Amino acid sequence: MKKPFLLLPLLFLLLLGLLIWHPWRRDSPNPQVTTSAPPPSPSEAIPPAAAPPSLEPVYETKPASHDGIGKFYMGREISQVMGHEGIDWLERDNREAEEAPSEAIAALDLKPDAIIADIGAGSGYYTFRIAELVPDGQVIAVDIQPEMLAFIDAQEEELGLDNVTAHLGSVDDTQLDPESIDAALMVDAYHEFSHPREIMTSIVSALRPGGKVFLLEYRAEDPSVPIKGLHKMTQAQAIKEMEAVGLAWETTHDFLPWQHLMVFTKP
């Protein structure tokens, strides 16, 4: 008669075990049951991921030299800009004798249907001479000064050409369409660009694969070149800056009286 009383404690313990280990509990090890974990304490919080390195170019600001703007890029101080007031100097009669631009233009070796952008075209001195070599192509004269572009428009009308386009850019963008040009030319202008990395990035974007960049600058290696120091560039500096935007140096022509013509390629 005492056995039923002994079963009561056993039944109680069995029921308690079921309550503790039943799979409907939130802490059940059943892999099919998902639960929301409580937020970690401040000491257990996961630190935020490190921000990716900035892709913006790094410029330095220092006291400006006599002909500079006090802004430095890859160790080079950017020079002051020649404004539209300098058109007469760009169009001077003795420029061929001093710089032999006809020889530089011949070295570009352009196809008749090439599309080339003259970046920092100024008065269009090179623009119109190149236009003769690409009768089935186009020369896009890019400048940030409306006065320069107005001069180019007037010259184009006077010469009766139909393969020259005056194009307004900005200090940090050529505003050219992606993969729209075969080549880009910069004649004694690049050293004046206030945003060289951004401008070159936009040029690389505008170039078709295999496109060329022709960089014509006064030779800084030659102290006899009668040009102010900041308006010259060494080959080593030019290669460093062009490689920074993904261009590969191809060759340098040193047959001109004062300048070197450096050629770079977009892979």
Rank of each mutant, 00 (worst) to 15 (best):
L215G: 08
P196R: 06
P209S: 13
I199W: 02
T174S: 09
A166H: 02
Q237N: 12
H167V: 01
A206S: 14
R208D: 09
M233R: 12
A166G: 06
I239D: 12
I239R: 13
I181L: 08
T201N: 12
A189N: 05
Q145A: 10
A150Q: 08
M200E: 13
R208S: 11
R208I: 12
M242P: 06
V213I: 14
I227H: 08
E217N: 12
K240D: 14
A184N: 08
Q155A: 01
S202G: 02
G169R: 01
H167P: 04
T174F: 05
S170H: 02
E179M: 10
D188L: 14
V213Q: 07
S170L: 03
E217M: 06
I199G: 01
G160Y: 03
P226T: 11
L159W: 12
L176P: 05
L168K: 12
L161F: 11
K240W: 03
V171E: 15
A189E: 01
M233A: 09
V245M: 08
G229H: 05
L168D: 04
R219S: 09
A166W: 01
K212S: 14
A220P: 03
N163G: 07
Y218L: 05
K228V: 10
A166Q: 04
I227T: 14
V225R: 09
S205N: 15
H231A: 05
L230S: 09
K228Q: 13
I203F: 11
L168M: 15
M200G: 10
L216K: 03
M200D: 13
